[in-house]
Design a protein around this nucleic acid. Structure first.
Lengths: 255, 255
DNA sequence: AAGTGGTCTAGACCACTTA
DNA sequence: AAGTGGTCTAGACCACTTA
């Protein structure tokens, strides 16, 4: 490769890459970034296999050990999935992954199950300032997706999902939206949600919410605000979910 | 070392260790377990430095690379902390770590701050069945710690903490408890909390809770139930926290 | 049998901290 | 200057999957 370099040179090379001399970027992180760029650009599509470690090491001009450290980092971020004996694959938002990684509601007695959509509406509207800030909008329009979601046939979740209209052209042509909306982002808009930050509060149901959820006005609800970000760290989605948690709970692991 | 072994032998050796032939335990995981055992046993105390990688590799009879993989695993579980140029240390529950790892409440406007204890009561009582199950109690008694905790001088958190009486002898002699209770577990009872699972719900304040928190009866509160476990995976603490989230929220990262 | 990722080694050199 | 953890290499062999 033309950009092959030895370990000693990698330090200054990393510095010139950004134009800022911020100490030192190890070779394996440079390799990680190169591979991540290919995934972001779509050169390597979700679900497809990467070249073998031997081939990648040759392509990148590094040892297998260094290449593996780069793959280790991507795997720990769940950007890729490795299977001994089979190969390394770009991660995709299949039902299982989304269910466990991004859906944290479980029954008090029966564990987790996937929710089903009973109502879905997509509309274009001007962004509110909170949304504009969370999504770092260039324009001023968002898609507003409103869904009623049920567990065991009972509506327990009210979702309001806001995304940048300009990043999701003709989203309204995709109605009815698939149950797993992150799969839609990935397949039709080439945007992969990498992680999310959620803020939880307890609030009281207003009249409309009480009617939709079949509870009393003033009933305690769990409000979950989520900002979801893409592989490159840019915010993709702002979401507010209200959940009736009488027989369900939100599960969080602290490690 | 007398138990030095080469890579080829490690597979069958791992099998005989447990008496069950469950495939294969790599050498670095065996080394990881050995070091974890020393930390659990207190041979290596929280806050102290481990021997250098070179020395450890010699002691364990493995290469530095394998030794580092074991340390990597312990570091990713936050059991140890490494500092380039200084050394490797057994993690301890200092204020900072507990604040960020186990305290997830933050102000809507000003980020996180440590809570202060305004009231604390310790009592011994019979365990309820839910507690007995969560803590896998051998006996039937628990310590019940009740605390009122404030942020910016205002009581926002009501905590009920239950621990096995037999694992915390004479806990009531430690009153007043320190602000950081996991530091107490670690220093005086040699129990390190490694991780926790939390279950969140929205509930309505009853009369007593409303009085303590200075809100109306029926006001929505965030209930957080936590089961905290030790380094060896055994449950240590069952805790129920009620939080007034009008100007605060619970923060959760999904990766 | 061939190909994949996973483990392990021995050694070199680098970045960082402390004295 | 000496000691620490961090990076990188080249090569060997192992566990697992697929054909």
């Amino acid at each position: 490769m033309s950009d092959k370099t030895d370990a000693k040179a990698s330090s200054s090379k990393a510095g010139t890459g950004t134009g800022v001399e911020l100490g030192f970027t190890p070779l394996y992180l440079q390799v990680r970034q190169k591979m991540l760029d290919k995934i972001i650009a779509g050169t390597w599509q979700p679900g497809t296999a990467l070249p073998s470690e031997q081939q990648l090491a040759l392509q990148m001009g590094v040892s297998q050990g260094t290449l593996r450290k780069a793959l280790d980092a991507l795997a720990s971020d769940r950007v890729i999935v490795r299977h001994q004996g089979r190969g390394t694959f770009v991660a995709e938002h299949d039902q299982r992954r989304t269910l466990f990684q991004f859906f944290k509601i479980a029954s008090d007695s029966d564990g987790r199950m996937p929710p089903e959509t009973l109502f879905c509406q997509v509309a274009e509207r001007a962004a509110e300032s909170e949304e504009s800030q969370a999504l770092q909008l260039a324009g001023d329009k968002v898609w507003h997706i409103h869904r009623h979601r049920a567990l065991r046939g009972r509506v327990l979740l009210l979702e309001d999902i806001m995304v940048d209209r300009d990043r999701f052209p003709a989203l309204d042509d995709r109605v009815p939206l698939p149950n797993n909306i992150y799969e839609l982002y990935e397949r039709h808009f080439a945007i992969t949600v990498a992680h999310a930050r959620e803020r939880l509060k307890a609030i009281s149901a207003n009249e409309k919410q009480a009617e939709l959820l079949g509870c009393d006005v003033g009933h305690a609800l769990l409000q979950i605000e989520r900002t979801a970000t893409a592989l490159n760290g840019s915010p993709i989605e702002f979401r507010r979910t209200l959940c009736l948690t009488d027989h369900y709970h939100y599960s969080s692991d602290l490690r």
